[in-house]
Each structure stands twice: as structure tokens, then as C-alpha cells.
Design a protein around this nucleic acid. Structure first.
Lengths: 285, 285
DNA sequence: CGGGACGTTGACTCAAATCAATAACCGTGG
DNA sequence: CCACGGTTATTGATTTGAGTCAACGTCCCG
């Protein structure tokens, strides 16, 4: 317990240089961090004793650069981040978007440097846990150990959802899946699951989905003309959640031996092909 | 310390029912588990005191079913596993292959049930850590806590590499990237990085790469005809590692503002198109 | 006002999905 | 032993969806 406080003090001192004078911890503690992650808080009193650093990152600013030494991990307190890596040719591959409660930099725990870059898509803030403290805090504050495990695990689930996105054949299906994912994550953050503002541009979306940005545009208008969503620039409203979800379930040719009818997506896109205007769509009713 | 042994005993008792009578722990301990993960072993003596369960899984057998309650996590001790999920239409989406040292089921830590299925591609064995023990062991055996963090982190890195695979435009590039990844992982396991036996079929590979299985076949013959590899069914030999790596770096249209020359892949595929036989290839020499 | 970033839409091309046929392999059982 | 069905892998023919190139409109900021 004594130990705990010492540790925390040291943490603060060590990190101040890191934050580049940007953020001072306004009295936030480990308890706040735990609450943001949604993990069960064991000993709230103990957790409230351990101060935690925060850092503000303005829109477009970088939180970590690719290849920079892995000195800390972060927990998103507010805002949105994009995680990406830039290959030798300058192509920027987006790996995920992170919302409130998610951990950033977990993938660096098994290496010396960050394999990915992270930048803020809007004004955001994070909790900072220095790498050296990760180990100690795990031992001293059991709830933190658990929160880290859960957050890391969630990160993995997200990453695998991402594979599900890119696995879809049709570009419209990829977009539909993304929108549903985002909708659920927004809901989880207490925001409206039916109407939201996209924090990223078409180009970034295209990278995430693994298609050309022109295709993203076309897919948006396609989904809108089916009557599933309504779009205006980055403003999105889901008009037919069930329909969108059904459409998002379209898959690539099913495994042999299972003789289901043709995939929904293709049927729908084919049936829509002849139509001229955004006709109302009856979906596998 | 005393506590440690009690915990372990309990673990053994609780798990015996789970293992379906398949595996008895042949005296393996936490020390063995730590060594397999490659994590630094702190107190070897302590770790050697903590028995750990193992479980054998025969080729084709299932380790966990999708949606089954998340009762344990696993560390691959030997063999190969595939991690996948089956969607409503019966299409089997492969998420990753796991080799020795990697953790399985980490994604279930943040939920009540496994979001993915896991089956063995060959006769394999795993260490079993019950979910309830994960928390306690993390507190009692610091080295385990660290090993779990590292293994989870590695899992995330793998999952993101997977995104890198599917992000590539050309199917031959995807396959090339996969082969290089696998080569490096094989090397990490102490096996030859130039010559290996694929544990998975074309269909499974196709699912992982996000293409049709016919395309995987064609990509294999393409890479072989470039002279980069040699293939015979599931036996693969990399003949030109540098060339393969250069080819694997081909990307989608680079981000605007960076005016690099056309992507390597397209050029190569174009220049190869005219050739009839597996000519020797000079790559960006 | 002009330059730049962003988004949409159209036209064209081509790579990969799909459909189909064949070959090789394997375990089973006559 | 071979015949058989089932699975897997390869290759060919055809179609189509998405990448690419290009033009255009909008918005914002200097």
C-alpha cells in the first residue's frame, strides 16, 4: 500500500517529460481508469489512491509514431483514434479505430518499439501507463491487472472483427458490417446507435475496408438507395437496422455441403440493379 | 507461496472433468509453460512448483467450439491450430493459425463465451489454464502475469499481420506475404524457414487470405513460375527469399502526394505475363 | 480569389469470382 | 487386390465487380 503510493509518485515524475508539457494530471486516479474500461473495480478505495497521468491529443495530432520506443500504453478516456501503419511505398493501412475505454499500444508489450502509429481523429485524451509501471501495477493493484487483460482481450476481438470486415466479398457488405460494428460500439459508449457522425474520411474508411475510396463513396450511395441508411457527408443515419444487419450477413460462397440459397447480398444487389430510384426494399421478409 | 500450491492443487482437481479424460498432466509445471511462451522466467524455482494441466488434441479434433463457455485459456505446446468462426450461411472464416508458444482463447477473457472456434490441424497439445486461475496466478506468479501479457500482445500483433495479408490487392501478393510470415514463425519455432509442410488445405488458406480457393491454386503456380518458390501439394520451398519479400511489399495505390513508381507487383506480373516457363527473375536489382 | 482537401460520379479495364471439368489421392469395403 | 465414393488440388472458360483514371462540385482556409 505504501509501496503503491511510491510507485505512483515515481510514475508521475518519470512521465512528465514524456507528455511534452501537454497534459497535467488533473487529479485523476486509477479508479477513473478502471471505470472507463468498464472492468469490475475491486478495491475502489485503493484504486482511488493511485494517481494516473493523462494526456490530451488534439485532432490530427500523433499519440505514438510507428517504430517509436514502447514506453507506455494508453487507455482512451475521450475521443477517437486511428491505429495504422505506413508501408515502404507510403500506403497507409488503417488497422482499427479506437473509442473510449479501449487500450492503445497493447501490441507493443511484446516488443521494444511500437509496431503501429496512433493519431487522434478529434480532440481526445488518454490515460498514460508507463511500461515499467504496467508490471508493478499489475502486482500491486489487482483490478488493474484484470482491466488490462480485459482491455487487451477486447483489442484482440476488435482486430478479429476487422478481419470479418475485410473477408466480405462485396464492398457494400463491408461497409454495412462496418456501420453495424460502429453502431454497436457507439451504443456501448452511451451514444445513439442509429445516428452518428463519422470521425474519419472516406479515404481512411477505404483503407480500413480494403477497397478504393471511390468504392466507399459508391457503397454509401448504394446502401442509401436501398433505403438502409441515409448519408450526408460524414453524417450517417441507419434507417433500417434489421435490413442492414441481414444485408451485412451476406457471405462469400458458403462451404460445400451446406446447400443454402444464394447469398442475400448478391440477390439484393441484382434485384436492385434494375431500379432507378431509392425504392423501398423488402428484405427476406 | 503456500497459497500457490493450494491454488495449483485446486486447479488440477477442477480441470480433470474438463479434459474429458484425455490428458493427464505428466508432471509439467508453470516453468514449462513459461519457457514455451518465450517470456523471461523470473523465479524459476517458484514456477517449477506450480503444476499445470495439459491436453492432447488429435488432428481434426476441436479444442473449443464457437460459443462455448469461456472456461479456460490455452498455450500451444506443440502442433498447429486454426482459429475460425462459422457464420450463419455456413461459411468458415479463418482468423489465424496458431503455432507453438502462442496463446489460444485470449479473446474470450473479456466475455463469457468463446467468440471463436479452435481445432487442431495436426496432433497437438496445449497447456490449460482455467479462467478462474488466470486471475489468481497473475497475482501469485508474477512471471505468469507477464507471460500472459506478452502472449496476448503477440496474439494482437498476429491478428494485425492478418489484416496486412488481406489488405494486399493482388492475390499472389497475399500468398507471398503469408508464406513469409509463416517462414518467420517457423524459424522462430526452430524449424527451417525455407522449406516446410503446410498444415492447412487450399480451402483454409483461401479463407485466411480472403480469396477463392481456385485463386490460391493459381497464385501458387504463379509464384512458382516466377521462380520464387517451389510447390508440390502442401510441400513448399522458398527458392528466392529476397525476391519473395520484395514482391510481398507490393501495395495498393500509394497515398496521394507520394509519387513512387508503379507498384512492384503489377509490373512484375505484367512482365511475367508473356513468359512461358519459370524463367529466372531479376527483381528490382 | 485561388489552392487544396474532400467527396461524388462516370467510363474503361482487368483481376478475381464463379462455374465446370479433370486428375490425384485416400480410406473403406467388397 | 481393385472398385468405389469422397475429398482435395489444378486448370480452363466466362462474367462481373472493383480498381483505376478522370472530371467535377463543394467546402474551407490562407
Amino acid at each position: 500500500m505504501n509501496n503503491t503510493l511510491q510507485l505512483a509518485e515515481q510514475s508521475v515524475r518519470t512521465t512528465l517529460g514524456q507528455t511534452q508539457g501537454q497534459g497535467r494530471s488533473p487529479g485523476l486516479t486509477m479508479l477513473d481508469l478502471l471505470q472507463v474500461t468498464g472492468a469490475p473495480v475491486g478495491d475502489a478505495h485503493q484504486a482511488a489512491q493511485v494517481p494516473v497521468l493523462t494526456r490530451r491529443v488534439h485532432a490530427g495530432e500523433s499519440l505514438v509514431h510507428e517504430g517509436s520506443p514502447a514506453e507506455a500504453i494508453f487507455f482512451v478516456c475521450a475521443g477517437t483514434f486511428k491505429v495504422f501503419c505506413t508501408d515502404v511505398n507510403g500506403y497507409e493501412q488503417i488497422l482499427s479505430f479506437a473509442l473510449r475505454g479501449e487500450v492503445l499500444g497493447f501490441d507493443a508489450l511484446c516488443m521494444e518499439s511500437h509496431p503501429t502509429a496512433i493519431t487522434a481523429l478529434e480532440d481526445s485524451s488518454v490515460f498514460v501507463v508507463l511500461r515499467n509501471d504496467v508490471f508493478h501495477l499489475s502486482q500491486v493493484v489487482p483490478a488493474f491487472s484484470q482491466a488490462l487483460q480485459r482491455a487487451g482481450s477486447l483489442s484482440l476481438v476488435r482486430s478479429r472483427d476487422q478481419v470479418g470486415l475485410m473477408a466480405a466479398v462485396a464492398s457494400e457488405v463491408r461497409l454495412a458490417r462496418f456501420l453495424i460494428q460502429l453502431s454497436q460500439r457507439m451504443a456501448h459508449c452511451g451514444q445513439s446507435p442509429r445516428r452518428f457522425h463519422l470521425r474519419m474520411g472516406r479515404r481512411e474508411l477505404a483503407s480500413l475496408l480494403g477497397v478504393a475510396h471511390e468504392t466507399v463513396s459508391r457503397s454509401f450511395t448504394a446502401l442509401a438507395s436501398w433505403g438502409l441508411i441515409e448519408v450526408s457527408d460524414r453524417e450517417v443515419e441507419i434507417r433500417d437496422m434489421d435490413g442492414l444487419q441481414a444485408f451485412a450477413r451476406s457471405t462469400r460462397r458458403p462451404a460445400e455441403g451446406i446447400h443454402a440459397e444464394r447469398s442475400v447480398g448478391k440477390v439484393m444487389r441484382r434485384s436492385m440493379a434494375g431500379r432507378r430510384q431509392g425504392a423501398v426494399l423488402r428484405l427476406a421478409a
